[in-house]
Measured scan of single mutants.
Amino acid sequence: MVDYIVEYDYDAVHDDELTIRVGEIIRNVKKLQEEGWLEGELNGRRGMFPDNFVKEIKR
C-alpha cells in the first residue's frame, strides 16, 4: 500500500469518509471498486476520500 498527500481540503459527508486537510499524509491507501474514491488511514481512523483531492507520494 502507498501513502498520499492531501492537496485540497475535503469535508466528509458520510460516516465512512475522512475529513482531510491540505498537507496531511494519508497512509496505507488502497483503491476501491467505486470509481473516484480511495481508502486510507488518517489520525487513527480508516475511511474513504476522493482521489482527485490527493497525490501519491512517490518513494
Rank of each mutant, 00 (worst) to 15 (best):
E56T: 08
R45V: 07
E17V: 02
R21F: 00
V29K: 00
A12L: 00
D15C: 07
N52A: 11
G36P: 10
D16Y: 14
E7M: 11
K31I: 15
L38I: 05
I5A: 04
E7R: 11
G36C: 05
N28D: 14
D3Y: 09
R27I: 10
E39Q: 08
H14V: 09
Y10G: 03
K58M: 10
Y8R: 15
T19V: 03
I5Q: 14
G36L: 00
D3P: 05
D16N: 13
K31M: 13
M48K: 15
G40D: 01
R59C: 14
K31W: 06
D51T: 14
V13H: 06
D3V: 05
E7A: 10
L18R: 04
F53E: 10
M1C: 07
K31A: 14
F53G: 10
D51F: 14
N52M: 10
Q33F: 09
Y10T: 01
E7C: 06
A12Q: 06
V2M: 15
V29M: 01
E24W: 02
M48Q: 13
H14C: 15
Y4E: 02
F49I: 09
Y4M: 11
R21G: 01
D9I: 01
R27D: 01
D11Y: 08
V13W: 09
D11V: 13
V2L: 11
T19M: 02
E41Q: 06
I57W: 09
E41W: 06
E24D: 15
D9C: 03
E35F: 10
Y4D: 01
V22S: 11
V13A: 14
R59L: 15
E56G: 09
R45M: 07
E24K: 00
E39D: 04
V2Q: 08
A12K: 08
M1A: 14
F53D: 05
I25P: 01
Y10D: 04
L42H: 07
R21V: 02
A12R: 05
I25T: 12
D16R: 15
G36V: 02
D9G: 08
E39R: 04
L38T: 04
E35S: 11
T19D: 06
R45W: 02
K55C: 13
R59W: 10
L32W: 07
E39W: 09
I26V: 09
R46N: 04
T19G: 01
H14P: 00
K58C: 11
I26L: 11
D16F: 07
E34I: 15
E24N: 05
K30H: 15
G23Y: 04
L38G: 00
V22Y: 07
F49P: 01
G40E: 00
E17D: 10
F49A: 04
G44L: 04
N52S: 15
V6S: 06
E56D: 06
D11N: 11
V54S: 06
N28M: 01
E24A: 06
E41P: 01
D3W: 06
V6N: 00
N43Y: 12
Y4H: 03
P50T: 02
D9P: 11
V22K: 15
I25Y: 07
I20D: 00
I26T: 03
R45C: 14
K30V: 09
E7Y: 09
M1V: 10
